[in-house]
Design a protein around this nucleic acid. Sequence first.
DNA 1: GATTTTACTATCCAAGTGGATATATAAATT
DNA 2: AATTTATATATCCACTTGGATAGTAAAATC
Lengths: 236, 236
Amino acid sequence: MDRFKRQILADEKRIYRTDKRRQQKLETRIRILDAALDHFSRRGFEAAAVRDIAADAGVTHAVIRLHFGTKDQLWREAVSQLFARFEQEMADPPEEPTSATPSLAQFIRRYVLYSARHPEHARIMMHESMEPSERLSWMVDTYVIPAHRRVMPALERAVQGRRLPAMSLVSLIYIISSSGQSLFMLGAEAKLIYGIDVAAPETIDQHVAAVLALLRISYGSTVGADRQSEGAIGIA
Amino acid sequence: MDRFKRQILADEKRIYRTDKRRQQKLETRIRILDAALDHFSRRGFEAAAVRDIAADAGVTHAVIRLHFGTKDQLWREAVSQLFARFEQEMADPPEEPTSATPSLAQFIRRYVLYSARHPEHARIMMHESMEPSERLSWMVDTYVIPAHRRVMPALERAVQGRRLPAMSLVSLIYIISSSGQSLFMLGAEAKLIYGIDVAAPETIDQHVAAVLALLRISYGSTVGADRQSEGAIGIA
DNA sequence: GATTTTACTATCCAAGTGGATATATAAATT
DNA sequence: AATTTATATATCCACTTGGATAGTAAAATC
């Protein structure tokens, strides 16, 4: 269980500290969401089995129905948790205790480090983004478009200010996000081809450096320097 | 049916032109492989249903068993076809009638154009590369490692010759391949977010330009200039 | 033209799926 | 301590899945 989930758990425990049932229900809920994220990201929505998720969470599959209703609703809850954590960690990254409005380089670094820490994010989006579906439309409308909207102006300024090469902004955002995610998302493949563990700190540092070298940006200009609210910026 | 499949079909027809059954069997086989590639790439191995593939191919699911045996064997046949076409089109691209040993820029361009023409390639690999499996090991050993081996020396020379920024070669190859593929692979998502059709020629041209601008390479230095055999080079 | 070969169909099967419901059990309330 | 509430379990259901097999019809062979 990571920092984010522990925080929620602690909050809830404080609120309902007299009610043991609510505590246990919440812990079960978190275990289910955790297992769901793991299965959905590795296998995709259709191939993931509710019974397998339940087994990993230490409950029977009927409990999932009780907590979340349908498999579809479970998926949406899991994706919501995922994006909530994404936005939180991009605004206030674990690796930067005191976080100010990030420079373009810092922002890219945060994004790559997040992708390395949580490869399930890219995986779950990949599985859904390859063919149209209700789930994809919902995820895009609810989370992806807002995230792109937050980061697009900064990228546009960087291109116009010649801090990034001139190119289509759509291509740019797809290149940046896929470059940052790919190595970690495809960890199983990279392990087989190169024998590397993409979760190793050296590998992660190398990849951060590689993406920054490719974009040829350093820790100079700030992203969203003109608006404080853009501190909690995100690409997805 | 694309040029590659028609070619095979024509060859086979010439050989067995007196045997109508062989012709029809081959045509059925091609229709099945075509549908299989489509389903496996969009939905992944587990979620794709043999019956659905059969329906799209205009046969019953028992025919697939007759032609290919198990679902797993069908997948392998489809992937083999995919990589055969990949290697053929990278060595002799449809957009370049007379193909010589490509420059680095030409090679990147070929790769992006191939990815745009056949987004199912990246999709099928993505679905398989997110968690270890027998299928992944087989695909990596049989096709991906050889393809990486063919292109790695050229990339290494480009980095050492300062034609590409200094970085980990593993990161570099993941960045190049994901950058080239992502926009087309995620066409469904891009359509929802930006309303664009990633198959449109303008979009494709823009993306080729974007990847080349990012790598800051032009049509100067050749890839594998010292060895003619590297003409049939590939990234996967 | 009769016989053999073979690509394909119709149908069956066991296993696994998402979902539904009745029951048990433990915690909270009175 | 008895009663109520609610979380989790055991089980059932209709449906789909990959796979298997017996039968059909058309093409090739004689």
